Amino acid sequence: MTSQEPPLRQPPQPPLQPPVEVALARVVPTLPTAPPGRRLAYEPKFDGHRLLIFRLVDTVRMQARSGRIITRAFPDLEAAARPLPPGTVLDGEVVVWAGGRTDFAAVQKRAFAASESRAGRLARELPASYAAFDLLAIGAEDLRPLPYEQRRARLMALLEPLGPPLQAVPMTTDPELAATWYEALPEIGVEGLVIKDLDQPYRPGRHWRKLRHSEARDAVVVGVVGPRLRPRALALVLPGDDAPVISAPLSTGVRAQLGSALRDLPDPQPPPAELPTALDRVGAEIAYRPIAPDLTVEVRHESTVRHAATTVMRLRIPD
């Protein structure tokens, strides 16, 4: 009877692998307060790009809200995440700071870097910071079923020794301090507050709440619908998302304002073999012509539904 060698042991795998469906927030009109016997957490909502960081056994992967893997776009954050324990999964927002405030157009330019060389150059010119607001897993442990209060404590213990560019977002359970943040922080590019129940698990869907300072927001133009220099509508990427949406038809004034700006943009090289599509306000797939993500517009939402009308108000002119 011959002895058998024991099977080779495989390295432990983290409990979560991309893609992971993310938790979202529904917009509320006023600052919520906790009913008796419960407590709420209030966090600043940064004007950035939603990103999950997966520290796998032998690599780092980064997932956008849509599920798209965009690790190559953020080599600086990939390097910063390597000291994390294998199995760590963070949820948060990528921001780029410029002139003392967050710059949404800059972070979108980073997210849509088309090549490794461009991504490396942008990482040097526009270094990214990561504002982590949740810890979904660590080691072999899936933390999503735990209450937010416990996940938050584990997140703080994990990131505090590391420091920038990986940092936990500020959080308070004091509604008066939250109200002060709401009034003061827009000066640095914070668009509002996200409110969570302390006993809440992490699950997909709009179970968090969000209080915005204004329905006017900045969006990055990633494509045009119709003639390139006089489009009928725009393909836009909004803060916190990476899936383009089609705007409502443009006004005559906005089309005229965009004309010269679009003329100065280079055509994408190489041009796509097939035009991409995005959803319009009624959920129809509309083809658009991609352009470099170098233009920012101010938009206003006419509804809180995900694919509601997004009206372009004006072109943002850089300072």
Rank of each mutant, 00 (worst) to 15 (best):
P14I: 10
E160P: 05
P276L: 06
R124G: 02
R9H: 13
A261M: 00
A105I: 04
L126S: 13
A292W: 05
V254L: 04
T252Q: 15
L211F: 07
G259T: 14
R314M: 10
V190M: 05
V194M: 06
A34Q: 04
L275P: 01
V190F: 02
T277R: 11
P6L: 13
Y148D: 13
P32L: 03
V224P: 00
A64E: 04
P266K: 09
L135W: 09
M313N: 15
E176V: 15
P249E: 06
S214F: 01
R55T: 00
L40E: 01
V28F: 02
L126Q: 13
Y130P: 00
W97A: 09
G223T: 01
I188V: 13
L295D: 00
P271E: 06
A79C: 13
L77E: 09
E160W: 05
G67C: 08
V299N: 03
R68Y: 06
P244R: 00
A106T: 07
W208S: 10
P11F: 03
P85E: 01
I69G: 11
D199C: 09
S117K: 15
R55Y: 02
R306L: 09
A273E: 14
G283M: 08
P85I: 02
E125R: 04
P266L: 05
D294N: 06
P272K: 03
I69D: 12
P239S: 11
E176T: 15
G205V: 03
A131T: 15
L211I: 09
A128T: 10
A81F: 05
G67S: 11
A184V: 15
V60A: 07
E21S: 15
M171W: 00
A131W: 12
S129A: 13
L155C: 08
R228D: 03
I195C: 08
E116V: 13
L126I: 03
V27Y: 01
E215D: 14
K45L: 07
T310S: 10
L51F: 09
D242H: 02
L31Q: 11
D241M: 14
S66P: 05
R110S: 08
P266Q: 08
W181H: 00
P85Q: 08
A287S: 10
L162M: 11
V254Q: 02
D174C: 10
T59D: 08
L262Y: 00
I195P: 03
A140H: 11
P201I: 01
L135K: 08
T311S: 10
G226Y: 06
R26A: 12
A216P: 09
Y148I: 14
L162C: 05
V220F: 00
M171A: 10
S260R: 12
L56D: 10
I195L: 07
R316A: 12
W181T: 06
V305F: 05
A168E: 05
T304C: 07
D264G: 11
L126A: 14
A106C: 07
P276N: 03
S303H: 10
A128N: 11
E183C: 11
E285I: 12
D76S: 09
L8K: 15
E183Y: 07
V194T: 07
E187L: 14
P32E: 03
A131E: 14
A233M: 05
L40S: 02
L238A: 10
